[in-house]
Design a binder for these strands. Structure first.
Length: 270
DNA sequence: AAAACTACCTGAGTGC
DNA sequence: TGCACTCAGGTAGTTT
């Protein structure tokens, strides 16, 4: 499941094949993604990718005629392939590149998004209300502390809300709260500045560490989906219900918050 | 205004 | 073996 580190890994994997290169042809096999792939995506054909970057979990590829926006949703992936590689089930969109290779979008659950837009990408409805990048300069403990005053919602939901900060999905929310020693159910508005400093640091730490690990898979990127296999063995809380806390040895608990599983150590997280 | 809930989707896993 | 069922998760949009 692509969280921010997987999206970043994907960007690093595909960008060398895209930046400065022309898209020759766009083929849409299944337009019914989260929203329909617009017919105007054809305008991308013939355009040169000027630059590509990530905003939250959105990937953006700019051309002179418009910007390609891609979100991988829950199960999406991008791969660079030779056109001779047969199309797999759930390969929904293909971008033929100058030089002969193809960029293919694969997404079994079709929660992903492919859009084509004009104008300033930051003003696009999907991007306009996003909070700061967790690895950027505008995100720190002071920011979280200030923003959370008066909020009654659980801190876990607070940091998973992309209006507050982008890129913190369920897994990394659990991991960061464990690292910071904060109980996920605690009211966001009642957490001290000092503890938010720890939380902001933990968020950056888990995301950066995971990007580093994703980076080690870059070599294999063209062959594999880009999902880092090492990832699971480093988890401290997520998906570890009943297993011993790596810090105190007690049982990791699982509860449900806002229809999502939350994993935490009741001894280490208060 | 803020918080909680719903819908979208398929594959993996479970139990009978 | 096969069927029915549940669960997972990102996030925009809707409801409370």
């Amino acid at each position: 499941m692509p969280e921010l580190p997987e999206v970043e890994t994907t960007l690093r994997g595909v960008l060398p094949h895209l930046q400065g290169h022309r898209i020759r042809e766009v083929s849409v096999f299944q337009p019914q993604l989260r929203w329909p792939v617009p017919a105007e995506i054809d305008d991308l054909a013939g355009q040169r990718i000027v630059r590509g970057y990530r905003r939250g979990k959105y990937l953006l590829f700019e051309t002179a005629a418009g910007t390609l926006l891609i979100h991988l949703g829950m199960s999406g992936s991008l791969r660079i392939l030779a056109p001779s590689v047969p199309r797999r089930k759930h390969d929904h969109v293909s971008f033929r590149l100058e030089g002969g290779k193809e960029l293919r979008f694969h997404d079994p659950r079709r929660f992903g998004t492919i859009q084509w837009m004009q104008g300033d990408p930051a003003a696009h409805p999907l991007l306009a209300h996003l909070g700061p990048e967790p690895l950027g300069p505008d995100f720190d403990g002071a920011y979280l502390h200030r923003l959370s005053r008066g909020r009654a919602s659980a801190v876990k939901a607070f940091i998973m809300d992309s209006r507050n900060v982008v890129g913190v999905g369920n897994i990394y929310a659990c991991e960061a709260l464990f690292l910071a020693g904060i109980r996920p159910s605690r009211a966001a508005g009642k957490i001290s500045r000092a503890r938010y400093e720890a939380l902001a640091g933990a968020i950056r730490e888990v995301l950066a560490a995971s990007i580093e690990m994703g980076g080690t898979t870059l070599r294999d990127f063209l062959n594999e989906s880009g999902e880092p296999g090492y990832f699971k063995q480093t988890l401290r809380a997520y998906d570890r219900e009943g297993e011993p806390c790596r810090s105190c040895g007690g049982d990791i608990l699982r509860v449900v918050q806002n229809q999502r599983s939350t994993f935490f150590c009741p001894h280490c997280q208060r």
